[in-house]
Design a protein around this nucleic acid. Sequence first.
DNA 1: AAGCCCTCGTTTTTT
DNA 2: ACGAGGGCTT
Length: 728
Amino acid sequence: MADLLQDLSAVQRDAASATEGPVMVLAGAGSGKTRVITYRIANLIGNQGVPAGNILALTFTNKAAGEMRHRVDQLLGPGSSGGLWIGTFHSVFARLLREYIDRLGYSRSFSIFDSDDSKSLIRQCMAELNISQDSVPVNTVQGIISKAKNSFILPADFHRNAADYNQQKASQIYELYARKLKENNALDFDDLLIKPLELFGNHPEVLEELQELFRYILIDEYQDTNRAQYLVTKMLASRHRNIFVVGDDAQSIYSWRGADISNILNFQDDYEDARTFKLVENYRSTGTILQAANSVISRNQRQIKKELVAKGATGEPLTLIEAFNERQEAEKVGDWIRKLSLEKQLDFRSFAIFYRTNAQSRVLEDTMRQHRLPYKIFGSVSFYKRKEIKDAVAYLRFVQNDRDSESLLRIINFPPRKIGDVSIGKLRDFARERGISLYEAIRCAPQGGYQQRLVNALSSFSSVIESLREIAETGTVYEVLNSLFVQTGLLSLLQAENTPESMARHDNLQELLSMARDFSDHNPDAGMLGDFLENIALASDYDETQESDNFVSLMTVHASKGLEFPVVFITGLEERLFPLNCYEPEQMEEERRLFYVAVTRAREKIFLSWAQSRYLYGQPQHCLRSKFINEIDGDIVHTESGRVHGGGAGAAVSVRRTEPVRHSGGGAPPVREKEGMRKGTRVHHAVFGPGTVLELQGRGTQQKAKILFRGSGEKTLMVQYANLKVLP
DNA sequence: AAGCCCTCGTTTTTT
DNA sequence: ACGAGGGCTT
């Protein structure tokens, strides 16, 4: 046990053994981050005798949590990780809330609403408030509310600070939405983070209890924490102050979801006695790949400077693929994969194809199929988001929590019971008049004065629910689900339909059933329905790895974070696609971090590809090559035929460099400034609307404009990308 | 109550 | 191009 830390490099060992006090580890890509975390946990338990139950380790994905638990078990022996509090933020706090949430006026059987459920509830709120979806799209409202929650702004605070008309509307919706969630005895994803904060604020005794429990706190991917996560961990750590955060500011790619990069950038200010360790030795990629990565990321302003140091060989140069259109791009990618798999005896699992937007996956997928290359697309429609699965799960959710009206509305007429919108409307009115829940209204239907046909339909529905509830009290999840399928005839209905689609649905439901059986086998106690549902609610498509299968992986760059592949294709490297439309300098830096993430996934070899023309929303668009290609030193980028890309006359005509890599050398940067724009000019922006230029900085492609917009306040935009119209 | 067509809006999405 | 949602028809 004492030599546990001998497997680590000196810096890794120092970081892993710094157990007391606040510690930040800046872990560059491929520098052994997970190793440091797991060895630190093993060290705490194995060498220092800390009970596993006093350690809290928070991650962003179930997969990461599972891997860490597994590796701790490998280090200390099977079962050692048993008492550890290790999991995603959401699952750990869901578990804690089950314990304490009655103090906030919810019951422990609360439902967890996914984003579809929450969207539909928001729609309902907007309808009730007579706010048309034409004036504000639901997605926008959902985004505003989620952002507010992530920043721990409660409805009352939001209302107080609502400046303009849209904000006023959003504040009304937010308020009603929060109330309705509570009526449903439901929490959305964001609530799982902010309800603990409310709990700690109103019930300090709970906070104290948990502060005492969690003597050691570890947080993975700290650069991706949002304000709520920052606050909740800070509160928990404030007693013992053993907070250990690991992250890489250069890989922060979720700011659009509320992740706040300043949490990691300011850690030193929060904890002045914090020790910092930088892990920059990279064990994953070739020297050439790291040279590319370093060169790209060095162009960002807002970052903690660090350069990855190669521990491996120099490796091959990057290869630039240039195509006429996206079809040809995909074909060239397919050709390369075929060629390399034959010549170098590489498995298909060695290859990954990355893209910026999901829309790009279609053509790639078609081509893979035509070339008969085995492939898997990650992050398509998640298993749990499929209609038939959501329907079946809605039954379970409703059996668990009969205030969950989202689930009720899903299943009341599924399978069809001839209960339509009109009948549901009547029931709603009935429920509202008497101040009872919708389900109570259904159970009182015989006294409601409805048509006999409706009364019969409703009572047959409620008898299914009641019988399932009875089974759930003493039986297993499997038994409940099985009885559901028998009573509703779901499986046989789908089988009878006998179309490819219906059979696929049938198989999916079978799969759910075997998952339930699996769960019941591992959790023999009755009354585990809540846990099963929680697993489902917080599971995602990215959790399963299936490393045994041999296929090419296709995924968005976001989905690739944390993974690695010998050969990586980064496709669609075009201006306005990757980088995607950027209006503010901050956004450009995030796009660059995203590109950095893509580059650092590769172990041996990178292909960069772009197409001169691409369909967007059904229209062909002319494309310009991404600036990111030029941000890599020209001498390590070769053309497909092997020539040095960016060399002078020798290079193929079509691959001539169009912009100098460094702004100091070469010709003048192409002018992208807007004609006739100066201080005071009135401009129009597609998103922010009309505004006035307050200030201009920089020149050419680097020019930035500070603009005061009527609706959205002050913004600093890059003129090149902002697509501003100068108003007369 | 169910089926059909039109319109709208389409970045990324660990949970 | 394409799917989801909403309103209209049967």
